[in-house]
Design a protein around this nucleic acid. Structure first.
Lengths: 241, 241
DNA sequence: TGACATTAGTGACCGAGTGTGACTAATTCG
DNA sequence: CGAATTAGTCACACTCGGTCACTAATGTCA
C-alpha cells in the first residue's frame, strides 16, 4: 500500500535530500512511526541513503547527539523524515551489536511515534507508509525494533488513552473502535466497547453527524477526558508468556 | 537499614577492589537491583570508586562493550557488585546527558534486576542494601533510574508473575502476599489474593508447614505454574496519568 | 414507492470476577 | 485455662464484560 505520489504538496515541508548520506556513530536514535491506513496499521520507512546499505528501506534514524535529549532527537528525526512531528512519542528499547544496524552503529535506542491518520509522506518517494504485513526486508535490528514498538504500543493501549492520537480531533465511535481493533489485532464487541468508553468519560458528543455511504449517519465525538478514575484493579495473575 | 558487616563470608565471592577506579565512556550500563528486606524493598548501592565523585554512593555500572550484549553486560555488572547474579533482569530506560551521571557518560541504559530475599551484599561494606526511603544522595541520572525501575517493576507485576523471583523456592502465602504489598505499595485483601492465586494455578502446596512465632503454622508452597490462561481482558480505558 | 441491506446506537440478561466481612483452625503466651 | 495471633475458608453483594436482540436512520434497487 505504498502512497501514490502526492499531487498537492503541503506547504512548509522540508525537501528530503536525495544525495547519498553516510552516517557513522556509536549510538543511534531510531524512530518507528505508526499511522492507520484504513483498517491497517502502517509504519514509515525511508529509502536507504548509504549506497553500501544491504536493504533498500530503513527506519528513520540518526546519530545521537550529546547535547540533545533523546526524546528531542526522536522528534527531530521524525520531523525530518515525515515533515511533521509525531503526536506522541515513547522510548521503546535499546539494543546492542548482536543485530546489524544499517548504519553499523554499536548501539541503538528506538522511539515509537504516533501520527494522526491522513498524514501523507513527503513528496519524492523518499519515504512511504508500509502496512505491517508488507514491510520490505530490513536490517535485523530495525526489524526487531518494529516488533518491539508494536508490542509496546499494545501494552500502552490499556494504560493510557493513546489511540486518540491516531485520530483527527473529531471522529465517530465506529472509527475509534476500528483504531482499537487495528491496534489490538482483534475484533471488539460494539456494545461492550461503548459501555466501557462511556464509563471512562473519555469522549463527549458534539452536535454533528457524518454520513459514510450507506447506513445511519454516525454522531461525531471529541476526545475530552472528564474525571480521572482510580483505575485500581485487583491483583491479577495473568500469564502472558 | 545498612547491612551490618557480614561475619560469615560466602565462598566463591569475588572481592570488590577498594582502589580508586576511574571509568570514562560514552555509554554506560547501570543496574538497579531490588531485594525485599522484611516489609521493605531495598536497592543495592555501591561506594563511589572515583575519588572525584560528588556522591558517596552510586548504582553499580560499567561502560558498555561493543562485543557484549546489553543484558549480558547488566548480568555481569550485577554479579560483580553483588557476587551473585540476579534472578531476573529487564531493560528499563535509556537516558541522555540532561542529567548528570557519576561517570560523566553521555548516555546510559538502565537495567532492573531482582534478587531473592536473604542475599547478603559482599563483605567489606563496598555495597549495601538501602530501603527506598533511605536512599542517600545519588547523581540525578541514577536517582531517576531508581524511580523508573520501580515503576517498571510495578508495571511488570501484573503482566507476569515476577514477584516469585524475590522469594526463596518455598514460601508461605502470607510471605507472597507481603511481597505483592511491598511492590504495589498497598494492602491486599487476604481472601481476594488467595482466590486470584488459586484461579491462576501459579503455586502448589507442599507437605510442609512453618511456624513463625505465634499463630497457626502456615503451609509452604512452591512456584509451579500449571496452565496458561489466556489473560484476555476486555477493553478498559483506565486513566492513570 | 416500498422492501431490503447496511450502519449506528441502546437495553437487558447472564455468568465470571472482585471487595468485603465473618467465620473456623491452630498455635503461643500468660 | 482463656486471650491473642496468625492461617485459611466461605458466603454475600456488587461490578464488569460478553452476548443477543432490538430500534433507528440512511442508501440501494426492483
Amino acid at each position: 500500500m505504498r502512497e501514490r505520489p502526492q499531487t498537492s504538496a503541503p506547504a512548509g515541508r522540508p525537501a528530503v535530500a536525495a544525495r547519498p548520506v553516510i552516517r557513522r556513530a556509536l549510538l543511534s536514535v531510531d524512530v518507528i512511526l505508526f499511522t492507520p491506513h484504513g483498517r491497517r496499521l502502517t509504519v514509515l520507512l525511508v529509502r536507504a541513503t548509504d549506497p553500501r546499505a544491504r536493504e533498500r528501506w530503513e527506519l528513520p534514524w540518526d546519530a545521537a547527539r550529546a547535547e540533545e535529549a533523546l526524546d528531542v532527537a526522536a522528534a527531530r528525526i521524525a520531523r525530518s523524515a515525515l515533515g511533521a512531528g509525531p503526536a506522541w512519542t515513547r522510548q521503546v528499547v535499546a539494543s546492542g551489536g548482536e543485530q546489524r544496524h544499517p548504519g553499523e552503529t554499536e548501539f541503538s535506542i528506538a522511539y515509537l511515534g504516533l501520527v494522526p491518520a491522513g498524514t501523507p509522506p513527503p513528496v519524492g518517494g523518499e519515504a512511504s507508509w508500509f502496512p505491517l504485513d508488507e514491510i520490505p526486508p530490513l536490517a535485523p535490528r530495525h526489524r526487531a525494533m518494529v516488533d518491539s514498538a508494536l508490542a509496546m504500543l499494545r501494552l500502552e493501549l490499556d494504560q493510557s488513552p493513546v489511540a486518540f492520537r491516531l485520530l483527527p480531533p473529531t471522529f465517530t465511535l465506529s472509527q475509534l473502535q476500528e483504531v482499537y481493533e487495528v491496534l489490538l489485532g482483534r475484533k471488539l464487541h460494539k456494545a461492550s466497547f461503548r459501555r466501557a468508553l462511556h464509563a471512562a468519560w473519555l469522549v463527549e458528543p458534539i452536535d454533528e453527524w457524518r454520513s459514510e455511504g450507506r447506513g445511519r449517519p454516525a454522531q461525531l465525538f471529541r476526545y475530552a477526558p472528564k474525571k480521572k478514575r482510580t483505575g485500581r484493579r485487583g491483583v491479577r495473575f495473568d500469564l502472558l508468556g
